[in-house]
């Protein structure tokens, strides 16, 4: 990171290569939006570059990059919520689609054996319907595999709060996927 701060383009390219996959995946899973994830990932690295001198040596580079990504993803979620509140009819349809036709009653009109892509789509949507503050913790922990301490740094909250949020998010995810799993089970 020191070389990035000294305008070393090769070092910055290496940083982008190292984190672009994880950052894109994080944003994609938090937003459940593959297209937007790419644009936001680009924005993350632009911000890393612009604020490269604000990086404090000694702190973990990964948590700093993840912090920027998490903040941008949260901003995007809030922007969407505002837009959804404004266009309330669209929002209602989207919420109904998310909560009833896809997750709440997955037994209706579906084959017993779901294709893998369908299953993954369901799981992705289930994650996306978890409230944002729980969802972010869950994705950082159970998809990106960050340590609890690092998540606390990324989100700027105490370690105990991270644990309780992750426990709640896991319970929510389990409840959302329960119908699907019970259908799956023999």
């Amino acid at each position: 990171m020191g070389r990035v701060a000294e305008e070393d383009e090769r070092a910055f390219s290496e940083l982008v290569r190292r984190y672009q996959g994880r950052i894109t995946n994080l944003i994609s899973r938090v937003l459940n939006d593959r297209e937007c994830a790419d644009d936001l990932a680009q924005e993350v690295f632009i911000r890393v570059f612009v604020h490269r001198r604000n990086y404090r040596r000694g702190s973990k580079l990964s948590t700093w990059v993840f912090t920027i990504a998490a903040n941008l993803a949260k901003n995007e979620i809030r922007r969407r919520v505002r837009r959804r509140n404004w266009f309330s009819l669209d929002a209602l349809q989207e919420v109904l689609h998310d909560s009833t036709s896809v997750l709440a009653d997955p037994t209706e009109g579906r084959e017993r054996t779901l294709e893998r892509e369908q299953l993954q789509g369901e799981v992705g949507r289930a994650i996306a319907t978890i409230p944002e503050k729980y969802r972010m913790s869950l994705v950082l922990r159970d998809i990106e595999g960050l340590a609890y301490e690092d998540i606390a740094v990324v989100l700027g909250i105490p370690g105990g709060t991270v644990r309780s949020r992750i426990n709640r998010a896991r319970s929510m995810l389990k409840r959302k996927l329960q119908p699907l799993m019970r259908k799956e089970a023999p």
């Binding site: 995946n25 990932a41 993954q120 799981v123 389990k174 996927l177």
Partner: peptide, 18 residues
């Protein structure tokens, strides 16, 4: 549920992102 979440395919960055 956590296995399913953890085994989701990773969304890779687009090749021209860099």
């Amino acid at each position: 549920a956590l296995e399913l979440a953890g085994s989701l395919p990773r969304h890779e960055a687009s090749p021209d992102l860099l």
